[in-house]
Nucleic acid binder design. Structure first.
Lengths: 143, 143
DNA sequence: TTAATTTACTATCAATTTAGTAGGAATAAA
DNA sequence: TTTATTCCTACTAAATTGATAGTAAATTAA
């Protein structure tokens, strides 16, 4: 039950872009050095964000990446769903329909559904701007 | 970010034992048939639960497994932490100390800590008895 | 005592996912 | 034309997942 490096690195990349958000394009190399992540690996992550138009990219000299929106307009949920593929904690909750044959009488399904909602609500309630400003989440969302 | 079959099967196994909880030992074969899970695979899962004394086992004819406590005394959290290894959503939150060199200034750590707490609190708030009685969790824990 | 039943233990394995690496083509600016 | 940068395709090693197989040990009933 782990968030993979893809998702974690993507969030760090977005924070880095937000912290260095001065209108210019930022080369991936700069981000890779600051974040101590292989540029080549980061490249595969940034391409997902770029293709989905979360980022604007420019090739060639003076090129790089920059945010397409303001930091407060990116939820962590939207970034993780993209880079992790899905935030569903069980595969039967992925996609539109549940095609599990046991679904109709499954004793555990409601628990997974509740958990799925909790995950998505939690990460949709946090923006990149929140992470840059350094809010503390460890005591929030007491259940 | 998935709960593996180990954890999910373990919960189903515990529910099955709770639903057939009549004092007798229940052979694994019976559970495997009812739950449509390979007996051999279930064996590797049940051994973890048995070694940690969540279950009582007896070999030989008339043997099998039964719950060591009442269904309401098992939280789903305790079962998942055991079978999944850990419920921590990022590896730096596993164990007692965080040895990540970035931890002291990590912009994302508070978010992961908050998420970790959310996960553990959610599953520690659900017991096997809850699952047997069929409570609905999809609208609980609104954040 | 023997046969049947059941857990316990050890080893193996194929498929998938994770976490990267490598090389070069396309593009843009100086 | 040189330099810097993204974009694209392919490859790979290691770990994890989800099992399967065979046998030993224990227990009970006939």
């Amino acid at each position: 039950m782990k968030i993979s490096t893809k998702g974690r690195y993507a969030v760090r990349l977005m924070i880095d872009l937000a912290e260095h958000n001065h209108g210019e394009f930022i080369p991936l190399m700069d981000i890779a050095k600051r974040q101590e992540i292989s540029e080549k690996y980061l490249e595969s992550i940034v391409s997902v964000l770029s293709k989905s138009n979360l980022l604007i990219s420019l090739r060639g000299k003076g090129g790089g990446y920059k945010l397409a929106k303001n930091p407060e307009d990116y939820t962590v949920g939207s970034i993780l769903r993209l880079t992790e593929g899905s935030l569903a904690p069980v595969s039967c909750l992925e996609g539109e329909v549940n095609d599990c044959t046991r679904a109709c009488h499954c004793r555990t399904l409601p628990m997974w559904e509740g958990f799925n909602k909790l995950i998505n609500d939690y990460f949709d309630g946090i923006t990149i701007a929140d992470l840059v400003s350094g809010s503390d989440y460890s005591d929030d969302y007491i259940i």
